[in-house]
Design a binder for these strands. Sequence first.
DNA 1: AACCCCAGCAACCGCATTTAA
DNA 2: GTTAAATGCGGTTGCTGGGGT
Length: 319
Amino acid sequence: MEGKSRMIYDEMEEIQKGPWKEEEDRVLMNHVKKYGPRDWSSIRSKGLLQRTGKSCRLRWVNKLRPDLKNGVKFTAEEERTVIDLQAQFGNKWARIATYLAGRTDNDVKNFWSSRQKRLARILQTSAPSSSRSHKSSIKEFQAPVFHDVTSVEAPKFSSSTEEASVTKSQSYSSSRIRDTEKTIKMEPLPDITYPSSLYYDSSLFQLYYDLEKKPFLEPQLHLPFYQIPQFQPDLSVPVESQEFVSRFGDPTFLDVFGHASGSMLGTAKLPIVPSCFGPTSGSQVSGSAKIMPDTFVEDFPPMDMFDQIEPLPSPSEWS
DNA sequence: AACCCCAGCAACCGCATTTAA
DNA sequence: GTTAAATGCGGTTGCTGGGGT
């Protein structure tokens, strides 16, 4: 080996990888103090560190930035935010992270993948071994997503027309509602103060109903699944789905809901009247103990065991 | 005590996009 | 306008510590 290739080899060899040492962090911090968070490549070219510019930047962004919540677990609120934004944006971790103060894209990404693994395991262990059809029925479900997103602040965007569409005058929630066809806006019921931004994913309904042909949901069927333990087996629900649905009563399955208890599920009913069906369409749940959506969200954090589930076709794909 | 499993995390890699020359 | 370098992003990997057996 000689000449240029030798030089390249030496250069490659010198590059430091792996965990950062304190001294390296100090050098990197000094660089940022002097020049700001940029010119990462110059750190190496000046001989300050044997790290690539990319590595330096990553270290700064993920660990050294002063505003980071290092070593702090995601709060329930942050989890809700991530779940909601992931549903909205997909795996746009950097974008999602802009909604979470002190969190990096890596944080969000790691949080999400941990969660996916956890849920996959839960699904796996709670799935009855005897039923293949059960497995397929799960795939037909998509999670109804309940969120109170009123407290989520939209980030301050500097550019991008798409991002600029979320203006200060527009709440994050309203943009969310506007953006998705899957969202059914909740109308407040008299004498109850509901967060105006409460919404859920209506696609659960799509499982059973072609909305164009059957504009009215049967009262029990448009219930969110927290009422499912009381689910009546004769409600024109496909047998497979009933089987799946019945598993909400399975104590193991309930682990998905964190500290939710089976008894809570059994008694909880929420009067929800999707506006598209109108308050007079007879879709209100009868005889229910009213619970606030927020309470519900708190008691049933990250309800996303359906995340593995393939999305249903969009309405335009229905035939 | 030794081993295994797993969750959480940090860091790397490859590719895409943006910026500067 | 072109090209190379710098930066940003998302997927993936590997390490580590804690808990269970």
